[in-house]
Structure formats: C-alpha cells, structure tokens
C-alpha cells in the first residue's frame, strides 16, 4: 500500500460512553452465565431418565409452591424495573423502596425454594438418591445461588445508594444489577417450563 489513502472520517467515531461499555461487557458476562445454565439444563435433560428406581419429576414437583415462587420472581422483575426508572429520575428514596421490595420478593422466593428442597430431602428424595435428582438439585440450586448472590449484591447496592447517592458509577452498577436480575428471571422461566411444567406433564 504505497499510496497514502485519503483520511476520511468513518462510521466509527471512537469509543462510546462508559455506561454503554459497561452494559456491553455485562451482557457478555450474562451470555456466559446463560451458557453455564444451558450446560446444567443439558445435564438435567440427559439424566432425566437416570432415576435408579427413585422418584421421577412428577413425584417431586409441588406446583403450588412453584407457582408462588414464579409469581414472586415475576413481580420482583417489575419492582426492579421500577427501581431503575426511579434511579434514572434520581428519585433515590423511591429507588430504595423498590429495591427493597425486589429484595424481599427475592427472599420469599428463596424461602419457598428452601422449603421445597427440605420437603424433598425429608422424603428421601435427596440429590444423592439418583442422577436425576442430582441434576434437578443442581439446576434449580444453581439458580437459587444466583438469587442469593443477587440479594447480597442488592443489599450492597442499597447501602451504596444511601451513602453515595446517584453518582454516575452507582447508576452504572444499578443498571448492571438490573440486567442481572432480569436474566435470572428469564432463566427461571426456562426452568419453570422445562423442569416443572414439562416434568409434571410427563
């Protein structure tokens, strides 16, 4: 290339603002996380037949419990989104309130999941009982652990909002948290349909 090309401002105008970069990076991370869930889903599907004479999906599913759980999580998505809207408008008190609601719903969700798990374990349907149950506990439990981490994060964020107010970096982190929480919701929808609905039908 001996001729020097004429300089031309091109369509790429340089790096975008920081919140866009952060959001993009967090999306990449979430894609990775979803792929990890997909692996657990695959594991669950492969092991669905490995019951070793133990209970199958239909025997362990308590649909009412799960229905309430689903309700909690779906509502928490709404409250989480509301917190986001409020944060954008810099109404920090409202933000905190909606965040709190989100967290509480998350805690209820977790409590119900723990209840479900302990019922199962009482009945001898432990993850050690069969490969199917291992897959079940891992898949559902992994989502549960994500919720725990989410709540921890949420608490930390609330403290930060309280201390630091609507600073740019706090806003960035809030929006990342919201992406995370929504992703958990989407994973749950997948879980709910494949593990619970499909499981109780077959």
């Amino acid at each position: 290339m001996s001729a020097v090309p004429t300089p031309r401002r091109s369509e790429w105008a340089g790096p975008p603002a920081k919140d866009i970069v952060t959001a993009y990076g967090f999306w990449m991370f979430l894609i990775g996380d979803v792929i990890m869930f997909a692996s657990f889903f695959a594991g669950y599907a492969v092991l669905a037949g490995g019951r070793a004479g133990g209970p199958g999906p239909a025997d362990i599913i308590e649909l009412p419990n799960v229905a309430v759980q689903t309700l909690c999580l779906l509502t928490s998505t709404l409250t989480c989104a509301l917190a986001g809207v409020m944060a954008e408008r810099r109404r920090m008190a409202w933000t905190q309130l909606w965040l709190l609601a989100t967290g509480l719903l998350g805690v209820i969700f977790l409590a119900l999941e723990i209840r479900e798990f302990s019922h199962l374990i009482e009945r001898g349907a432990t993850p050690q009982r069969s490969a199917f149950l291992s897959g079940f506990f891992m898949l559902v439990g992994c989502h549960g652990v994500h919720v725990v981490a989410g709540i921890l994060w949420l608490g930390t964020m609330m403290a930060q909002v309280a201390v630091r107010g609507p600073k740019a970096y706090v806003q960035r982190r809030l929006s990342a948290f919201m992406l995370y929480w929504h992703a958990l919701d989407i994973v749950w929808v997948g879980l709910f349909s494949i593990v619970y609905i499909w499981g109780s039908i077959t």
Partner: peptide, 30 residues
C-alpha cells in the same frame, strides 16, 4: 466455551464432595 468447563467442573466437584451422581457408575450417573 469456558462456562461449559465451569459447569462440568462444578458437577464433578459435587459428585466428589456431596455424593451427587452426575458422572458416577452408580444411581443412573452418566
């Protein structure tokens, strides 16, 4: 690809530490 590794290693870890049956010969593991 690395999330798949994370998941796989996690499963084997649970097999070894908590007696799960993802990959064992016993109890329907694969």
């Amino acid at each position: 690809a690395f999330p798949i590794l994370t998941a796989t290693v996690t499963m084997l870890t649970f097999d070894r530490y908590l007696g799960f049956h993802f990959f064992t010969n016993e109890a329907g593991g694969n």
